[in-house]
Design a protein around this nucleic acid. Structure first.
Lengths: 243, 243
DNA sequence: GCAAAAGTGTTATTATTACACCCATGA
DNA sequence: TCATGGGTGTAATAATAACACTTTTGC
């Protein structure tokens, strides 16, 4: 709280606070989200975003990190993890008033959540399907997921977050593929390369090369220290929509 | 909530949920924030962001709108109002666990909060002072305010939010002044004008003019329908720092 | 050699920047 | 007429977009 309002009877009332995670990755040429299957009512059996209650002694970020570790076995400090926004419609949970703080995590194609301690039926689902008709995401999770995807798209414009989707070391094609998959458009390879390599600190070449299935071997890169992109890499300027 | 975790005893525990408002305006050539003076412990007598408890039947946006109306007497639907982010450090309120959802409101130089029903000692404070040494904002409100200011700066780059600071109708100078005050830099008047007028829907000319203290009368404009700026008006590209 | 993908170069277009200069008004 | 912003024009620079072309691999 922060401001009492003695003149108006509106003191604190108990609410449950949770953290839900929108964990995105790029797999098989499509954006995927990590979903679990609910084991309890309400929405028993429905797919849902992983998440859980904030514990009394935890900060919100801490809860997000813990949930991420529990659900995926991954160290959140090595992923892109940021608070997305909060959702608190009074009827969002039929059991009672809950407010959830959503977090967005971006990571490379993780070895499927099996490492998690209690990864109950966690699985990767293409975002297009999870947001499609009749998929039936629990609660308001479809809206949260949609917001998360939009945030991810925007992050690709102004930050180096795309590298979070790549397993190091990665090729320029792989990085470009992230943009293409997340934005759903095609980018001109040569213009993309120029943009990335000329942005100081976006990627650093390892000097190594990797042979591809076919064609000339590609140079390998790692994430650079830069976090922000200037100038940004705007999707509306669609470099090239060469299907 | 969303995910129970039967294997781990971590059920819901009561937390108070509040909404705090970062209400910004431009006055006398400086960015100001609306602060109240706390009447109760803790931080009794300290300046703080206006805010209050979320009521049982309210959504978060509703609470923000209600608080805005109560504190300033203004209709939030006519201001730029958006969720900023949430803060939930376990020790942020000594009375107990609270999570606050901060909102950012941008408005023209409001007729000082007197209209509010219970505007207890609400006043405009220059942001530079509120964030300065020894000002003593309650709770973690200094961090929230800093985040709000940074968000506002960023919004000016990518959206037409700057018009929210202007009283209609406004002149090009007034709009430019908003950018200069919020960003703390000087902009080249002619380049700024070109940028604004060439962005479809940013502003619409009224056809009227207003005589200034000195010099040629300035054309008047109103907010246009556009919400996003493309291309953006980036502050790093500092048009001109002719300060 | 051929296909395929990496990578380089070149040009046209657009956006940004800097700044010169004219316009309309009050004093 | 002068001082003071408002407002227009223009040229240099930088970024983007489109696309031709060369390189290096596997087969």
């Amino acid at each position: 709280m922060t401001t009492e309002r003695p003149s108006r009877p509106s003191g604190p009332f108990p609410a449950a606070v949770t953290v839900d995670l929108v964990i995105l990755t790029v797999r098989e040429g499509a954006l995927h989200v990590l979903l679990i299957e609910r084991g309890n009512e309400p929405f028993r059996g429905s797919p849902a975003l992983p998440g859980g209650y904030v514990r009394p002694w935890e900060g919100l970020d801490e809860t997000a990190l813990r949930e991420l570790r529990e659900e995926t076995g991954l160290d959140g400090r090595r992923l892109h993890l940021e608070q997305l926004r909060s959702y608190g419609a009074p009827d969002r949970d039929p059991r009672g008033r809950t407010v959830t703080v959503a977090y967005l995590a971006l990571g490379p194609d993780l070895p499927v959540p099996v490492a998690g301690t209690d990864a109950h039926a966690a699985r990767w689902v293409p975002v297009a399907r999870a947001l499609g008709e009749g998929f039936g995401l629990a609660f308001d999770h479809a809206a949260i997921l949609a917001d998360g995807v939009e945030r991810a798209r925007s992050q690709l414009e102004y930050t180096t977050a795309a590298t979070a989707f790549c397993t190091e070391p990665f090729t320029m094609s792989e990085l470009r593929g992230v943009y293409e998959v997340v934005w759903g458009i095609s980018l001109d390879p040569s213009n993309f390369r120029r943009k990335v390599t000329r942005t100081a600190g976006f990627v650093v070449p390892t000097g190594e090369r990797r042979a591809m299935e076919s064609g000339r071997p590609a140079a390998l890169y790692r994430r650079g220290p830069a976090r922000d992109l200037y100038p940004p890499l705007l999707r509306s300027s669609e470099m090239t929509a060469s299907g």
